[in-house]
């Protein structure tokens, strides 16, 4: 066996992954060749060191600061879905609520329920008879669009408040030029948001304005997040 072949296999020897034949051929060469046996010894000491120190870890430079950064991000994530809750909250609260009723109260409740159900059934049957199974011609899309925009604004506002708070805390460290830049650019984005909101007030079905409003809100959020890092 030559040195080249030996040094190709020496790692596997250290790992104990060689066949008995290869191992004995290699050992013979190592006994004769000082250079190769030195390579084997070196690799052996690297591998043994790693094995004996497995499970030892070094701490991040500032464990607390890292945790605070992680917590900040997580908190915004927790806050965002929370805005969607109030709409379902009523039902979940209603369903999970427990009631304590006296017998007269129970009887009154049962009577009220019978009344509501019978009235509802009568109304529904009448509508059905009149061919009113079609969707009612209500202004639903209109209010839907407006609600969607309002919900979106409310969601974004919560996240923005959070990042804004962080920006304000850091702003004192910036130079004047950076502060001016930030204010100017937030103003530019706010102008866009307001323009789109005005257009949506005029025409709640304006999909283009709705898309632009979303994009501008996202950009503002991204800018606040970027500057909160400074």
């Amino acid at each position: 066996m030559n040195c080249e072949k030996c040094q190709e296999l020496v790692g596997e020897l250290v790992d104990g992954a060689l066949s008995p034949e290869d191992e004995s051929t290699l050992t013979l060469h190592l006994e004769e060749c000082l250079a190769c046996s030195e390579v084997r010894n070196d690799l052996q000491s690297i591998v043994s060191f790693c094995q004996s120190h497995r499970g030892e870890y070094s701490a991040p430079p500032n464990e607390t600061a890292l945790w605070l950064r992680i917590r900040n991000v997580i908190e915004t994530e927790v806050q965002l879905p929370a805005t969607a809750l109030p709409a379902q909250g009523f039902w979940s609260r209603w369903m999970s609520r427990s009631w304590e009723l006296s017998i007269p109260q129970l009887a009154a409740s049962a009577a009220a329920m019978v009344l509501i159900v019978s009235l509802g059934t009568t109304v529904l049957l009448r509508r059905w008879d009149n061919g009113a199974g079609k969707a009612p011609v209500a202004t639903l899309p209109n209010s839907d669009a407006a609600t969607r925009v309002r919900d979106r604004m409310r969601e974004q506002q919560q996240a923005m408040d959070y990042w804004n708070h962080r920006v304000e805390a850091n702003k004192v460290r910036w130079n004047q030029q950076m502060r001016d830049t930030f204010d100017r650019n937030v103003k530019a984005l706010d102008e866009t948001v307001n323009e789109r909101l005005n257009e949506l007030n005029r025409n709640p079905h304006d999909e283009f304005s709705e898309a632009m409003l979303n994009a501008a809100l996202n950009d503002k959020l991204a800018m606040l997040r970027d500057f909160s890092d400074l």
């Binding site: 080249e4 040094q7 250079a35 030195e38 390579v39 690297i46």
Partner: peptide, 22 residues
């Protein structure tokens, strides 16, 4: 490229491995 070590090696033996160096 991996240097194939032949004959007399660099006289500087590898130091005892320690955490910082590794």
């Amino acid at each position: 490229p991996i240097q194939i070590v032949k004959g007399t090696e660099n006289p500087n033996a590898m130091p005892v491995v320690d955490r910082i160096a590794l």
